[in-house]
C-alpha cells in the first residue's frame, strides 16, 4: 500500500452500539448509589491525588459507565483511597466504594484471598 505520509485515525466517538456498558451494571450491583451520580465534579475538585497529578475520578467514572476502559486501571492506581470525595458528594454516592470496586473489576490480579 502506498504510504501517503498520514493515516486516518479512528473517530473519537463513543459508539453506544458497540460499547460494553454491561460492566457498569456490576458496579451498580455492588454500589447502587453510583447510579445517582450527576457528575457535579465535587469529588474531582476535592481529590487529594489531583493536587499532585492529573487524576479525575468523575471523568473515570463516566468513562467506565460508557464502557471506555482503556487506561482506566492505571488511572485508578493514582487514587490513595483517602475517602475525601465520599464526604463532599451531594448525592451521597459512596465514591470510595465505586473506585474500589472498579479497581477490582479492572484488575483480577487484585483478588487474592477474597472469592
Amino acid at each position: 500500500m502506498k504510504n501517503w505520509g498520514f493515516n486516518i485515525s479512528k473517530p473519537r466517538a463513543i459508539d453506544f452500539d458497540t460499547a460494553d456498558t454491561s460492566e457498569y451494571s456490576k458496579i451498580i450491583e455492588k454500589v447502587p448509589s453510583a447510579q445517582r451520580c450527576l457528575m457535579c465534579g465535587a469529588c474531582a475538585a476535592t481529590c487529594s491525588a489531583s493536587n499532585h497529578i492529573d487524576f479525575n475520578f468523575r471523568n473515570c467514572h463516566l468513562k467506565y459507565r460508557r464502557g471506555q476502559f482503556e487506561g482506566l486501571a492505571e488511572e485508578f492506581d493514582k487514587c490513595m483511597l483517602c475517602g475525601k470525595c465520599k464526604l463532599v458528594c451531594p448525592r451521597g454516592v459512596n465514591t470510595r466504594a465505586v473506585i474500589y470496586n472498579m479497581r477490582i473489576f479492572l484488575n483480577d490480579l487484585n483478588y487474592k484471598n477474597i472469592e
Binding site: S48, N51, H52, D77, M80, L81, C82, G83, R96, K112
Partner: peptide, 23 residues
C-alpha cells in the same frame, strides 16, 4: 497545608499493602 499525601491507612484497610507502604 496545600499538598499532602494520605497517611496510607485507608489503602491498608482495603488490603492494598504495597500501595500503603509506598505512601
Amino acid at each position: 497545608e496545600d499538598k499532602g499525601l494520605c497517611c496510607g491507612r485507608p489503602m491498608r484497610q482495603q488490603g492494598y499493602i504495597q500501595q500503603s507502604k509506598d505512601l
